[in-house]
Amino acid sequence: MHQFKTNCKRERLKEIRHFVAEVLADIGLSEIDAHKVILAVDEVCANLIIHSNKCNPSECLELFIEDHGGDGVLFEIIDYGIGFNYNNYKEPNLEEIIRKRKKGGLGIMLVKNIMDTVEFKNEENKNICRMIKKFTKVK
């Protein structure tokens, strides 16, 4: 189990990506597979930092990564902010985004597309995002 803890500032996203990249390189993923998964984790963390925790630097975010071999790699992101209601998420209509010049909702669309499993739940005052990605390893 690899773990990383940081505070809720947008500037921390680069460090989060760096951590995920190192772990995925250790696990033995191809660069293109790793790149997409790093993006998915970055998208969830950006949403949690900006929307759930309003970029409050005294709030923290914890990320756990565990290699489950043939069952994939498990990513767990924990925060204590306002929970995200994934059940209410509606995939944005791209034409509407263009027409109204809106930018929101695209991150989760990417996450759903990249990861094999995505779950958001609330347990004892903490929000847990659990994602699984199955890979063909290069090592």
Binding site: K36, L94, I97, I98, R101, K102, L106, L110
Partner: peptide
């Protein structure tokens, strides 16, 4: 990330309205 993609998406309508020719090039495959 989607924050950057959203920026490109948000200007598409204005590019059309203002009749601006706009091309992106040189992207790495990833």
């Amino acid at each position: 990330s989607s924050a950057g993609l959203g920026v490109f998406m948000s200007i598409i309508q204005d590019l059309e309205n203002k009749d601006i020719k706009f091309v992106i090039y040189g992207m790495e495959p990833k």
